[in-house]
Amino acid sequence: MIKIKNLTKIFTLGDNTLIAVNNLSFLVPSGQFLAITGISGSGKSTLLYQLSLLDRPNRGTISIDNINTSKLTSGERISYRLKNLGYIFQDYAILPTLTAKENVMLPLLMQGVKENIAQEKAKEALLKVDLQDRLDHLPSQLSGGQQQRVSIARAIVHNPKILFADEPTANLDTESSETILKIFLNLHKQGQTIIMATHELDYAKLAERNIELRDGIIIRDTLKKSKNH
């Protein structure tokens, strides 16, 4: 369960201040597939950065499973991210000098998992995204959609509490995008908490819950009745 209270992020540019996330409070139960929607500039990414502890809000608290993350030191935030969170960036963001398998192994190695075990787990994660036959390919040898799937495998390999995805399909063609969404739905079925930002309503509709932002404020919060956990 994620408890967000009075979350506010303000950017100051010279004399101008911009409230990108404006005093948001909401709960995300474990296992929920939440889509954050809204037009470009509405604050989706900024919200995700705060929730995934990549950035620090100006005000408000984020508690994950009763841990108040605003109390964590920056070192603790890094190791919290490593153990409990997974993040999928819009532009894949996998390392070019590592193969698909090595990219996925990296967070495990960082957690002290032995190399051979990390390899097995990486293979399992890549199987989940249907890349079992691309294990030793370098990113340059993979398509955009395949790279994004490597990025998903890397984000889920350590069974994170929450999987974040910021516009995961924005750079992809329709077919690849649908594959990605299918993977998310599958993960969701297995109980994975997912928070995905997207401006594409067709994909947002597939999620269990939609929160629509405008100017950093929630203007709509809808829950699909059929998909109660």
């Binding site: 990549l54 993040y87 960036f89 990296l106 960082m110 984000a155």
Partner: peptide, 12 residues
């Protein structure tokens, strides 16, 4: 950018 991403996913 990649160094940022590594730190982002929790690499020290």
């Amino acid at each position: 950018k990649y160094i940022g991403i590594m730190k982002g996913i929790g690499i020290s």
